[in-house]
Every structure is written in C-alpha cells, then in structure tokens.
Design a protein around this nucleic acid. Structure first.
Ligand SMILES: [Mn+2]
Ligand SMILES: [Mn+2]
Ligand SMILES: [Zn+2]
Ligand SMILES: [Zn+2]
Lengths: 149, 149
DNA sequence: TTGTTATTGAGAATCAATTACAACAATAAT
DNA sequence: ATTATTGTTGTAATTGATTCTCAATAACAA
C-alpha cells in the first residue's frame, strides 16, 4: 500500500501535481496484485463511482511506468497489460495460448543472465522480460480427452 | 531460401491455395534476416513494383505465424515486429531503450529454463521469449559525454 | 471445362492510444 | 490579495494498426 506514497514523491520530484484523480487511480492500481489493462482498471473505478476519464487513466499509467512502479507485462488482444511491481518479487510469466491464463514463476537463471550482461561493458541492462508460452495443465488434459474421445 | 517451399507445403497441407500474392510476400520475408514490421514489408514490395494490398500482407503474415516459420519478436511504436525463424538459430534480443537498436544474443541458460519447464508435467511449453532492455554501448557513451560536458 | 470455394483488393469498420482544447485548479510572482 | 503562469482534467476529435466486408476473381479438383 505504499506505492501510493512513492508515486506522490515521484510526482513532486518531477514538479508535477498531486491531483485527486491521480490519487484515486494509483490507489486502485496498488490495491491488488493482479495483472490489469486500461479497460479493466477503468471499469473498476467506475464501479466504485469514481468518475475519472479514460484519458486520465492512460496518462496516469504512463506516469506510473516512468516512475518504475508499474511495468508492461505483455501485449495481448490488441492492447497492453500491466502490473505494479512495488512490493513484489521479480517474476516471469507463463502464458497458456489456449485459455490465456497467466502463471507466474521465478527462475534464478534469468537473474544470472541479467547480471552477466549488466557486468559486460557492452550494454547497460536495466530490465528484462521472460515469457514462456504453451499449454497449462487444464488445457493439456482437455486436449488429451479430445484425442481419446 | 527454402522457407518459401516449406510455406507452400504448409498451405497445401491446410487445404489452402498457393497464390502469386502469397508467393511474392513470402519470398520477400525470407529474402533477408532482418526484423520487419508490416509497413516496411509492404513498402519493400511496393518498391519492387509488386502491387499487393496491405490486407494480403497482414493475412499472409498471420499464416506464416501459424506455420511457425515467422515469429513475433516484439511490440514497439504501436505495432508488432517480426522475423523469420527458418534457417536461423534461436536467439534472444537486447533492445536499447534510447536508440531502439536491437542486438541479438544467445544464452544457453534460457534453453535450460525452457527444457526444465517442458519436462515438468505442469505445463507443455512450446516457446519462449526473452528480452533484455537497457542502453547500448553507443548510447552509454553519449550519456557519459553529456555528464562530462 | 466446370463448379466449388478460397483469395484478392478496396475501403469501411473497429479499437487502442494520443492529442487538441477550453475550463479549471494549484502554485508562484507581484 | 490579485494576477500571472503553468499543470491537469474531461470531452471529443484524431491517429494508426489491424480486422472485416463484399463483390470480383482465380486456384484447384472433378
Ligand atoms: Mn505478474
Ligand atoms: Mn532476431
Ligand atoms: Zn490453459
Ligand atoms: Zn542505443
């Protein structure tokens, strides 16, 4: 719940202004650990009777990205999906190409790769994204039943 | 140059038709190892006086993806970027967030991660994508000069 | 050849994301 | 306090990528 405060600081540092709209959006972003897209975030706000324009949602997400508190997770169904990273351990994503389910996982090796490249003088690595694609257990089982049946 | 033939086979297998438009598009896709997006591919065709509609370019890329001969590499500037994979070794991508340059690299560890998950009975992993982000050497040097100057 | 059916190009439609702008609000300057 | 400056908002318009519609055409099998 402290990403909210960090975002306030970021806004101040940048000489921007803390507005009630930003406050509400950012609180909502940090209220869950789920992945989200602009539309679901916007609808969550509407359901709570917060009348904030979609433009402001876009603008605030853009700021959250710049602040480093939110990251783009993946692009699917024609639009971007996000998650907040403050207070969460780093992790990677497995995406089921059948049911679109997301499964998070952590592999130390990926950190090693990141470190190795960071130490080389060739690049300054600031981030990485590893996605695995395939079929989740549920969808595997469904397919096996299909073959059997 | 044989991805073209494999694509013909794929099209036949699926009961689809080999058309001159598809042939021209696919030849162009396999004519270089560069990353490409729909627009640059379309313009390359236009420059060669091939009058093929953009819709057909989209449709053929979609087939190429399904056939497994082409892969989505990354989403940037509001649209997808692709590369053909036939006849190429697997590799990952480093993307400079300053100049947008792409640098390809290969890490065995990533293959290990893929294998490890494939063997687990939890998921059936069919593919992966690893991207590193940061600053390339050129952009690092530019920034250092900025600080010094 | 002929019939069936996939494919094409052109343009319209869709949808995510950005932008222009006028009203408004917060801060700084006088 | 008053005024000027500048940031922010919502609305609506705009841009740009991608998909879709549909009538004309062409691939392929019989
Ligand atoms: Mn996640
Ligand atoms: Mn590549
Ligand atoms: Zn699944
Ligand atoms: Zn660079």
């Amino acid at each position: 719940m402290d990403g909210v405060r960090l975002f306030r600081d970021y806004v101040n540092e940048k000489g921007l202004r803390n507005t009630p709209e930003r406050e509400v959006i950012v609180r909502e972003v940090f209220s869950t650990h789920d992945h989200f897209d602009v539309d679901t975030l916007y609808l969550r706000l509407r359901n709570k009777k917060k009348n904030i324009s979609k433009a402001s949602v876009y603008r605030t997400i853009s700021l959250l990205i710049k602040s480093g508190l939110v990251k783009e997770v993946f692009f699917e169904d024609g639009h971007m999906h996000y998650e907040h990273v403050y207070g969460r351990d780093h992790h990677c994503h497995f995406r089921c190409i059948s049911c679109k389910k997301i499964i998070e996982f952590m592999e130390e090796e990926i950190i090693d790769i990141h470190r190795k490249f960071s130490k080389s003088s060739e690049f300054e690595v600031t981030g990485h994204r590893l996605e695995l694609f395939g079929y989740c257990r549920d969808c595997m089982e469904k397919e096996e039943k299909n073959k059997a049946g």
